[in-house]
Amino acid sequence: MSIDFSKAAGVHDDALRLRAERTKVLASNVANVSTPGYQARDIDFAASLRAAVGGDAGDGFGGDLALDTGAQDLRYRVPYHPSQDGNTVELGVEQAAFAQNALDFQTSLTFVNMKLKGLAKAINGQ
């Protein structure tokens, strides 16, 4: 009898991969805060996770998280206060999204860690 760790982690395996990719997108936004004409992008996490878990091929994932940025369904962020140079990055908004994404990443990581510790206890007969 073998253990399938991808099934043991549940949705958190896909969530961790998607959160890591979202971190890259948000970091790119922050890095381009002063670039004229740069359009801030973000991943619709809920829709992308549903597509990854449900196997909906309409979002470019097809049930398997294709972590190639070009294959993802990135959306443009609408600014609260548009700038004159066409840059839509708002540093406060990006920092808040980055911090929330980091917390959510840590939460998923904690769930996976707890699940693996539970499996280790079961294997050891505790």
Rank of each mutant, 00 (worst) to 15 (best):
I123L: 15
V93G: 02
K117E: 15
Q84Y: 07
L26H: 03
L74N: 09
Q100C: 07
N87D: 04
Q95H: 07
L49K: 03
T88E: 01
T23W: 07
I123F: 13
A9F: 02
G58P: 01
R19G: 03
R17W: 08
R41P: 05
S48I: 04
D44A: 09
A52H: 02
G118I: 02
T107M: 11
Y80S: 13
A120Q: 15
T88S: 11
A96V: 04
D68E: 13
D42A: 13
V30L: 14
S48C: 02
R22M: 14
T23R: 14
A9I: 00
G54K: 02
A97G: 01
I43W: 04
F45Q: 06
R50H: 12
Q95V: 08
Q106I: 14
M114V: 10
R50N: 12
L67I: 10
D73G: 05
D59P: 04
A71C: 09
S48W: 02
E94V: 02
A66R: 06
N87W: 00
G60I: 08
A40Q: 07
D44M: 04
L116K: 14
L103S: 15
G92Y: 01
V25F: 05
A47M: 08
L119Q: 11
P79G: 04
D56Q: 13
A46K: 12
A120W: 14
S83E: 03
G10V: 01
D44K: 08
Q106Y: 09
A96S: 13
F61N: 11
D64L: 07
A20V: 09
Q95N: 10
D85E: 10
D4C: 00
D104L: 15
L116D: 13
K24R: 15
